[in-house]
Amino acid sequence: MLNYALRRLLMLPVVMFALSLMIFALQMSLTPTQRLAAYAPSPDYLKGGQESIRRMIEQYGLNDPFYIQYGRWIGNVLSGNLGWSETARQPVGTALSSLFPATMELVVLAFVPGLLLSIYLGSRAGIYLNKWPDHLIRFFTIVGWSFPVYVFGLLMLLIFYSVLDWFPPGRLSHWAQDVVTSNQFVRYTGANTVDSLLNGNLPVFFDSLRHLAAPAISLIYVNLASMTRIMRTSMLETLRQDYVRTARAKGMLRRVVELHHARRNALLPVATIAGMELATMMGGVVITETIFDYAGLGQFSAKAAANLDFPAILGFGLYFVVVLVVMNLIVDLIYPLLDPRVKTK
């Protein structure tokens, strides 16, 4: 176990290094003049004409060889300096860390119920293979999978906001925003749901849930298919195993065998792809947050991309990748606890 964990941990810097190289290479595809924007303290510096631009390129060493520039850049990144974001009018690092809790809140609220739902639907479909629950579940999930998140999101906005007026866009209502920014309200984590509970303010808690509901439902539905599919296949495979047949032959109830013996083991492949699924969902956040005007990392990155705010885009990419790599590592480390067979390898 320790060996396995250690090997995974040792891989981490290698992966990180390669990823940082990749993001830096993306950055280097810009011309020195474009990259200069990342260093200019204010837009006026770029208006000084060819001569001053050339001088600044010289000053910041933007014509130096690749490895020298990489070294300088990675040094900056490691000391937390990701450049200045024109979109946020803040340093990129500050903007990202202030928006991170909002996105995490949304992703967790979509990922956990989505996971449970796909386990439930997938095992149902497996048990009732080729019968109507199976057909129904497959149809339901494949429809969700084919829905572009922006079309589904706009539909949700139309139904739950314009028609029913249940789930408004944004992150908080105005009154709740006033409460959250007031002095009495302590911001422990930056995530509204958690903070409002810690502050014992239930109205704000429900208000933030109301704003989270529609984006979370959109994320869940469009991402439901793949995990349900894996769960179904895995359930089918488990149901053919000898021990399942033995349990049935002993006269155990079909329901007990299916739900208690087979389903547990069928969960393993789902755990394997859960990390990847989380990544997909976090990618989906970009559009979902944009549609529902939810001020998080995703909306920020979409704005940055549209504004050609390069430091923000690259900083966001780097930040995101680090979060994902760490999450994947956690999944990998949990995995041997679920499947003892991994330990011996």
């Binding site: 990823l19 990749m22 989906g284 990748v321 994947n328």
Partner: peptide, 11 residues
């Protein structure tokens, strides 16, 4: 390791 959509958007 890079989320597909975000990587594509950056590029």
């Amino acid at each position: 390791a890079v989320p597909f959509f975000i990587a594509a958007m950056m590029l």
